[in-house]
Design a protein around this nucleic acid. Structure first.
Length: 849
RNA sequence: GCGAAAGUGGCGUAAUUGGCAGCCGCGCCAGACUUAGGAUCUGGUCCCGUAAGGGGUGGGGGUUCGAGUCCCCCCUUUCGCACCA
């Protein structure tokens, strides 16, 4: 330990020590309790920005604390699994995959090292992307055999910029999740995973994780899954054998239906209008709607005016036998429900708007009733049936004008009418979801190739397991022609059918990289396994993940996929639980002002408001940067980057370091036995020490790192205020000081591991924090307890005095002491005491009149 | 429009969950040591007031002995969803 604090020197020295001693390698001892901590992969584009630093600093703090608490900690890094190998980067075109050049990877390794993040380095994962692809492909085959993967032709989301298909989740809001381009629809034959089969479980199992996940994320997932209960009803098309199926949540309003409205591209139209004079009208309308959607660029908030066209067809209401026109309209969505609705203008705002525009009839079929009195309320305003009644009284209506169903309560009618439809064979009760199957085919030149061979006579044949992995070719040209770049590589495409051994074509699409990320952290438990994605027992020890940390941006992509994937792994017998992640922390963005605009935006290369962590580390040291980033705000808050604050972190570290340096000679030979007697200031210091330990231990469990650091600062201030000096300290004083300093250093280690190691050595310990028997300090309640309390005394709720009392003073004594206080007496003189409230150890409130 | 969360000093934040509002830090002010200070140390710093005292957690009402915290109405901000039938 030097007289002065030199961060660069200290940090370099301990980083080397950790590397040499393998300090963070994962132990094989499976009898110890485990802690699996993981950060979401950083999407590196060759450099880490402050958002990443925050992400990893949080994870490292937890990992350090758990190590000191005796846990077997897995805190891996293996980012290479997410991207494509470096040589692929060399052929990149205007569309950038991750910048996986050797140079960038080396740079990132350097950044992690300079930050001193305590990963278990999983080089074997990093180096073997092909091995990882093998297991992606293995999963593909397993799920295919289970019927959980299938191929179909469908209108899929297409990013014109990146020339690839995207899943619904990746094109949320109509824009590509990576490049922000507006997506288009294309009809393509693609591979899908049956995520919608798991919709109900994905909802139900939220109960298992709601304690550990932010409510916000669960809400977003719930909305995305979009469960909605109601009924299907089939309407016969007049003079044909065709039926059109609608979905409704309000089957009780069916007698109010005045039309069937279908999406402009509803398949029924093409089928039934072939001969019709109106065919062209409808087709033109459909084309216009498509064009206006594309032009609008899916701008959020841009709700189009309702527009439709009469198809000339008629549908028959299976309940009433009534005929009604069939319209095509732009407000009915192909992708939700059945793409067709029954229009009930009296009880639905959208249908009302539409009916008004095209002068369709409006009929009320629900009367408002008073919920309490259960009787019909005649509301004169709404007697006029041409006035729309918004469908606001979901359960509290009573049916009118509804044939035999009139007089029933809505809630009963909904249930009974759906059952009736089912019994009569023209419908059924139904639950629909917005969540749809996950399309995983991508036309990219990275990601695991889909292990399928197309044979003219045998069809789509899975690649036999022993032939895995199917590897990407070394080079592929990005053609921009809307095909996978792999399609142009003859030696890749040309294959032999595994069944009939005739020449065949290989599938040229690759899997969405979200497939990798759905299970990568399972592989980290057992990265060298050559017989399975991971060993079941090893997986059972390490997973589920105890703490996952990352940004909110994956709330409905990665985090939904990985939950679903885990359920599929359960169903093929790999894991025995439902949920892969026990606790999730969505850390806030690190923002910075963009140029002159005064706008706070996430730091990024493109916005030009990034702060280079390397530069900060160069000026202040990694410890100070990490300490500041953890101290400045709670982890889930947005963190507005203001550099001035770092100085405070440096000052604090210097003060701790100086304190250890000042005391280190005196501590060297001092006895470790607990002295019999302590002076006042030593007792006060010990009290603060143990209070601090208790507080920080609790804060860590809640991830309140900012308050933990504030508490450490308080403890250091207390040490300064205690008035104990090395030259004059008694043996007992020295004991108390050592206790305080050791606690301080140990609890600082999760935030500032380098200087903590240095100070731990300065306190006379050899071998580093993890190998010198260091343990997270234990709070002793008896020592933390105050000897004397200051009890506030209020009069009519206003603070008037304070009295001193020992803890656990009986109520009567507190009351007497309060009433005897001079200040209190002068305030209550001549007034009547109505009541005295005494909260033991807390407060006295005297109510006077 | 619908849904969720949040509004506390000049700033980032804290408050044992209904009990002394503002911990800790930044910034600022004053002082000490200095040839010097963008170093360090000490003290101060919610507002009004010389003081006694009074006011104060977006605004208004309520419950309570007591409200930043609970309830109702409004305002603002952020986030999510957005014709979901």
């Amino acid at each position: 330990m030097d007289e002065k604090y030199f961060p660069e020197k200290i940090e370099e020295q301990w980083q080397q020590f950790w590397a040499e001693t393998g300090a963070f390698e994962v132990e094989s001892d499976k009898t110890r309790p485990k802690f699996y901590c993981l950060e979401m992969l950083p999407y590196p584009s060759g450099f880490l920005h402050m958002g990443h630093v925050r992400n990893y600093a949080i994870g490292d703090a937890l990992a350090w604390q758990k190590r000191l608490q005796g846990y077997n900690v897995l805190h891996p890094i293996g980012w290479d699994s997410f991207g494509q190998p470096a040589e692929q980067a060399a052929i990149k075109r205007d569309i950038q995959p991750r910048d996986w050049t050797e140079e960038n990877i080396a740079h990132m390794r350097g950044q992690f090292k300079r930050l001193g993040i305590s990963f278990a380095w999983r080089r074997e994962i990093a180096a073997h992307t092909p091995a990882y692809y093998k297991w992606d492909q293995w999963f593909f085959l397993q799920l295919l055999a289970k019927g959980l993967i299938y191929r179909k032709s469908a209108a899929v989301n297409w990013c014109p910029q990146e020339q690839t298909v995207l899943s619904n989740e990746q094109s949320s809001g109509g824009v590509c999740w990576r490049c922000g381009a507006s997506v288009e629809k294309r009809d393509l034959e693609q591979w899908f995973i049956r995520t919608s089969d798991y919709a109900e479980q994905l909802l139900a199992d939220m109960g298992e994780i709601e304690q550990g996940w932010p409510e916000r994320v669960l809400t977003m997932q719930r909305n995305w899954i979009g469960k909605s209960a109601g009924a299907f009803v089939d309407f016969q098309i007049k003079d044909t054998d065709e039926r059109v199926r609608v979905f409704t949540t309000r089957v009780d309003t069916i007698y109010g239906a005045n039309a069937i409205v279908v999406a402009p591209d509803h398949p029924l139209l093409a089928k039934l209008l072939a001969e019709s004079a109106l065919k062209d009208d409808v087709e033109q309308f459909a084309a216009r709607v498509r064009a206006s959607r594309a032009a609008a660029g899916q701008q959020p908030g841009a709700e189009e005016a309702k527009e439709g066209v009469n198809t000339g067809l008629f549908a028959i209401n299976p309940f009433s036998g009534e005929q009604m026109p069939v319209w095509a309209a732009n407000y009915v969505l192909t992708e939700y429900g059945t793409g067709a609705v029954m229009s009930v203008p009296a009880h639905d705002e959208r249908d009302f708007e539409f009916a008004q525009k095209y002068s369709l009839s409006i009929r009320r079929v629900i009367e408002r009733i008073s919920h309490e009195q259960e009787k019909i309320e005649h509301d004169p305003v709404n007697q006029d049936q041409s006035v729309a009644m918004p469908h606001a009284f979901t359960d509290y209506g009573i049916l009118v004008n509804s044939g035999d169903w009139s007089g029933k309560l809505s809630a009963d009618a909904m249930r009974e009418m759906a059952a009736h439809a089912q019994a009569q064979g023209f419908g059924e009760p139904a639950v629909t979801y917005r969540l749809r199957d996950w399309g995983i085919s991508r036309q990219r030149f990275w990601g695991a190739p889909i292990p399928i061979i197309y044979c003219a006579s045998c069809g789509a044949v899975p690649v036999p397991e022993q032939d895995l992995p199917v590897l990407l070719p070394a080079r592929a040209e990005f053609t921009g022609a809307g095909q996978s770049p792999l399609a142009g590589v003859a030696e890749f495409v040309n294959a032999t059918c595994p069944k009939c051994h005739e020449p065949a074509r290989r599938e040229t699409d690759t899997m969405d990289t979200f497939v990798d990320s759905s299970w990568y952290f399972f592989r980290y438990c057992d990265p060298r396994n050559e017989n399975a994605p991971f060993d079941k027992e090893v997986g059972a020890y390490w997973t589920p993940v105890d703490q996952y940390i990352g940004g909110i941006e994956h709330a409905v992509m990665h985090l939904l996929y990985t939950r679903c994937w885990t359920k599929m792994m359960r169903d093929i017998g790999l894991v025995a639980f439902n949920e892969p992640i026990k606790k999730l922390l969505t850390q806030g963005m690190v923002t910075n002002v963009v140029g002159e605009t005064g706008e706070w935006k996430a730091m990024s290369k493109s916005a030009g408001n990034g702060v280079d962590p390397d530069e900060m580390i160069g000026i202040y040291g990694a410890d100070a940067v990490r300490l500041f980033i953890m101290f400045a705000a709670p982890p889930d808050n947005e963190l507005r980057w203001q550099e001035t604050g770092i100085e405070g972190a440096v000052r604090f570290l210097r003060r701790v370091y100086n304190a250890v340096y000042r005391w280190r000679e005196r501590l060297r030979n001092a006895p470790r036995a607990v002295p019999q007697e302590f002076g006042d200031s030593a007792r006060a210091l010990r009290r603060k020490t143990h209070q601090t330990i208790a507080r920080i231990t609790a804060d860590f469990a809640e991830l309140h790192f900012n308050t933990s650091i504030a508490a450490l600062m308080e403890l250091l201030n207390e040490l300064g205020d205690a008035g104990i000096a090395p030259a004059t300290a008694t043996t007992a004083d020295v004991f108390a000081v050592r206790e305080a300093l050791e606690a301080l250093v140990l609890m600082l280690a999760p935030f500032t591991p380098h200087v903590a190691e240095e100070m731990w050595a300065g306190l006379g310990h050899e071998g580093g924090l993890l190998h010198s028997g260091a343990r997270w300090p234990q709070a002793e309640q008896a020592l933390a307890r105050k000897e004397e309390l200051e009890i506030p005394v209020q009069i009519n709720g206003k603070l008037r005095a304070r009295i001193r009392a020992v803890p656990a003073t009986p109520e009567a004594d507190l009351r007497a002491a309060a009433l005897a206080d001079d200040k209190v007496r002068s305030h209550i003189a001549g007034r009547e005491i109505v009541k005295v409230i005494v909260v033991p150890d807390r407060l006295v409130n005297i109510v006077v009149r």
